[in-house]
C-alpha cells in the first residue's frame, strides 16, 4: 500500500520554483532517506505531504487521500527540524496537550516519555531541557497516536551517539510494524543500514531515487577491498598494477585495492583462492560518497548552464 505519493509535483513561491516535477512514492513499512543541501526542496516536500501547502501543479496523496483531511492527519507523526515547544510547560504537560490535539489516548504520554528516556525529566519545564532532550520530546510527540507515516526532519540533531543508535533502532521497529518513515538528514554516515531507498534532491528536483545497491550500480563508484595477512603481498601488488587495478601496499602483508563492480567478484575469488589472506574487508560506496557524486554531477550541470 502506498503511504505517500507525489505525482509530478511543482511548487512555486511567486517566481521561485521550490519543487519541479517531483514524483516519488513511499510504501507502508518502507524507510526513505531524503537528502539534499539547504534549499534543495526537502522541507517543501515535507510541508506538501503534511498538507500545509497546496501544490502549484501535480498531486499529493497520503494513504490515497488528500493530506488535508483530519483522518489522514491523524495517521501522520512529524518531527520538524529544530523542534520547539512552549517553554513554560513541562514535558508531561506538553505531550498531554499534543495528545489531546491528536485525540490520542493520554495513557500513551507516560509510555512515550519512558520510551525516549525522558521519564526522569517529565515534570521539569521544557525551558530547562537541553537540545537533545527537546529532540527526544519532539520524537515522543511525533509518535503520539501510533502514526502510520512518520516524517522526521533532521532527527539526530542534538542527540549523542547512544541516543542516535536508539533512534535508528526505534525506526527499525516501526518499519517492522508497517510504519512508513521519511527521514530527512544532513548526517549521512551510518544511515545506510536504516533506509530502504534514498532520494537525493538538488535545486528543487529529484536527482536520484532508488535503493542503495541500485544507486551504486547506476553511479558505478568502485568498492575498496582491503586484504591483510597475505603472503607475497609485494608480488600481488605488482601483478595487480600490471592488470590495471589501483592498488596500494600497506606494510609487508597488507593491500588496498580499488575495484569496480564488474571486476570485484572475479578479483575476490582470485584473492581468496590463491592469495590466501587472513582477512578481507570490502567497503562499498557509502551514502556520503553517493551523495557527493550526485552533488558534483549537479554542480557540473549548473556550471555548464
Amino acid at each position: 500500500m502506498k503511504a505517500v505519493e507525489l505525482a509530478q509535483v511543482r511548487q512555486c513561491y511567486g517566481d521561485f520554483i521550490a519543487l519541479d516535477n517531483v514524483s516519488l512514492s513511499v510504501q507502508a513499512g518502507e524507510v526513505l532517506g531524503l537528502f539534499g543541501h539547504n534549499g534543495a526542496g526537502k522541507t517543501t516536500s515535507m510541508k506538501l505531504i503534511l498538507g500545509l501547502l497546496q501544490p502549484s501543479q501535480g498531486q499529493v496523496r497520503v494513504f490515497g487521500d488528500s493530506p488535508r483531511t483530519v483522518q489522514v492527519r491523524q495517521q501522520i507523526g512529524y518531527l520538524p527540524e529544530n523542534v520547539a515547544f512552549y517553554p513554560q510547560l513541562t514535558g508531561f504537560e506538553t505531550l498531554r496537550h499534543f495528545a489531546r490535539l491528536k485525540s490520542a489516548p493520554l495513557s500513551q504520554v507516560e509510555t512515550l516519555l519512558d520510551q525516549v528516556g525522558l521519564q526522569h525529566a517529565s515534570h521539569k519545564r521544557v525551558k530547562t531541557y537541553s537540545k537533545g532532550m527537546r529532540q527526544r520530546l519532539g520524537l515522543a510527540q511525533a509518535l503520539l497516536g501510533k502514526p502510520q507515516l512518520l516524517l522526521l526532519d533532521e532527527p539526530t540533531v542534538g542527540l549523542d551517539p547512544i541516543a542516535t543508535g536508539e533512534l535508528y533502532a526505534l525506526i527499525q521497529r516501526l518499519r517492522e510494524a508497517g510504519t512508513a518513515v521519511i527521514l530527512c538528514s544532513h548526517v549521512l554516515s551510518g544511515v545506510e543500514a536504516f533506509i530502504d531507498r534514498a532520494a537525493i534532491m538538488a535545486g528543487g528536483q529529484l536527482r536520484a531515487l532508488g535503493s542503495l545497491p541500485a544507486l551504486r550500480a547506476e553511479v558505478g563508484l568502485p568498492s575498496l577491498i582491503r586484504v591483510s595477512g597475505m603472503p607475497q603481498a609485494h608480488e600481488w601488488h605488482r601483478q595487480l598494477l600490471l592488470d590495471g587495478y589501483q592498488a596500494r601496499l600497506l606494510g609487508e602483508q597488507n593491500l588496498e585495492i580499488t575495484a569496480h563492480n564488474g571486476a570485484k567478484q572475479q578479483l575476490l575469488k582470485l584473492l581468496l583462492e590463491q592469495g590466501l589472506p587472513q582477512d578481507v574487508e570490502v567497503r562499498q560506496a557509502s551514502m556520503e560518497e553517493l551523495y557527493r557524486h550526485y552533488m558534483q554531477a549537479q554542480s557540473r550541470i549548473d556550471k555548464g548552464a
Binding site: 500545509l52 512529524y78 523542534v83 499534543f98 491528536k102
Partner: peptide, 9 residues
C-alpha cells in the same frame, strides 16, 4: 510551534 501545531489534525 506554529508549524508543529498545524501538522496536527
Amino acid at each position: 510551534t506554529l508549524l508543529l501545531l498545524l501538522s496536527y489534525p
